[in-house]
C-alpha cells in the first residue's frame, strides 16, 4: 500500500469518500449463465468492478503430465483486460496475475470435491473487464458462482471479501482511492457454512487488533455476500427444485 496523499479518505462524520460507513459494502449485483458456450458462468458487478467468469470441465487434463491420478486439478486464470484500468495494461499475464491465479486456484480447490474427478482439469477463467479495487475477492466470488452454475460439487460456495485500513480507520471493502492511498489491505475468501478460510493475504502495516478487526469485518460481510450468491442461484434454478 502506500503512496502518501493529501486526499482525506474519511471525513469529519466518519464517512468514506463514496459516502459509505466503515463497515459498509459497495453495491453488488450478480448473474449466472452469461456465457452460453461454457459449462458454467457468472457475472458480477461489485462497486466499479465488472468481472465475468466461465468454467470448462471437468475435462481430460492436457498436457498429460499435469494430470493427477487421484483428483482433478483446478486451473483458475485471473486476467485483466487491457482497458480495465486507467492506464492501459499490457495484455497477458504479469507477475501479479500469475500470483493471483495461483492463490485463487488453491482456494477454489479447497472447496471442490476434486477427488471425484481424477485425471481431469477444471478450468476457471476470470476476466476482469473493469477494475475498481478488490478484483481478486470479487473474482473468486464470481468464479465460485460459475462453478456452481456448472454443477460442480462443492463443500460450499467460496466468498471473497477484503477489509483494510484508511486514514487510521479499519474499513470494509476498499475502493480504488482507498486501495491506492490506504495503509493496509486484507483480502480473504471463506466458506461461510464452516467459516474455513480458503484465501488469506495481507499487505500494509497493522497492529494485531487492527488486523483481527479487519478479518472479522471481512468475514461478517462474506456471509452477507453468500446470501446474495444463494439468491442468485435460486433465481435461475429455483429454490425447492431438486433437479440440480
Amino acid at each position: 500500500m502506500g503512496m502518501k496523499s493529501d486526499i482525506k479518505l474519511i471525513d469529519d462524520n466518519g464517512l468514506r469518500i463514496d459516502g459509505r460507513l466503515p463497515n459498509q459494502l459497495r453495491p453488488i449485483k450478480m448473474e449466472v449463465g452469461v456465457v452460453k458456450r461454457a459449462d458454467g458462468s457468472a457475472f458480477i458487478e461489485w462497486g466499479g468492478n465488472k468481472i465475468i467468469a466461465a468454467v470448462y470441465g471437468p475435462r481430460e487434463a492436457y498436457p498429460k503430465h499435469v494430470q493427477e491420478s487421484d483428483r482433478a486439478i483446478v486451473r483458475a486464470r485471473y486476467n485483466m483486460a487491457a482497458f480495465s484500468v486507467d492506464e492501459r495494461k499490457r495484455p497477458g499475464p504479469d507477475r501479479r496475475s500469475v500470483e493471483l491465479s495461483k492463490v485463487i486456484s488453491e482456494a477454489l480447490t479447497s472447496a471442490i470435491f476434486v477427488e471425484k474427478f481424477p485425471r481431469t482439469a477444471i478450468d476457471v477463467y476470470i476476466e476482469v473487464l473493469q477494475a475498481d479495487a478488490g478484483t481478486r475477492v470479487a473474482g473468486i466470488t464470481v468464479a465460485s458462482l460459475a462453478l456452481a452454475d456448472a454443477g460442480i460439487p462443492m463443500r460450499d460456495l467460496v466468498v471473497g471479501c477484503a477489509a483494510g485500513k484508511v486514514d487510521g480507520v479499519v474499513v470494509l471493502d476498499l475502493n480504488k482511492e482507498e486501495d491506492n492511498f490506504g495503509e493496509a489491505d486484507v483480502p480473504m475468501a471463506i466458506m461461510p457454512r464452516t467459516g474455513d478460510i480458503a484465501l488469506l493475504q495481507m499487505d500494509g502495516d497493522l497492529t494485531y487488533e487492527e488486523l483481527t478487526n479487519a478479518m472479522e469485518m471481512a468475514m461478517d460481510a462474506a456471509k452477507e455476500i453468500y446470501q446474495l450468491e444463494i439468491k442468485t442461484l435460486k433465481g435461475k434454478y429455483g429454490g425447492d427444485n431438486n433437479d440440480d
Partner: peptide, 17 residues
C-alpha cells in the same frame, strides 16, 4: 514494532479463524 506487514496463505487446505 510488533506490526503485521504481510500475510500469504497457500496450498489447498484451509485455516479456521
Amino acid at each position: 514494532e510488533g506490526k503485521i506487514n504481510a500475510m500469504q496463505k497457500g496450498l489447498f487446505g484451509t485455516f479456521s479463524y
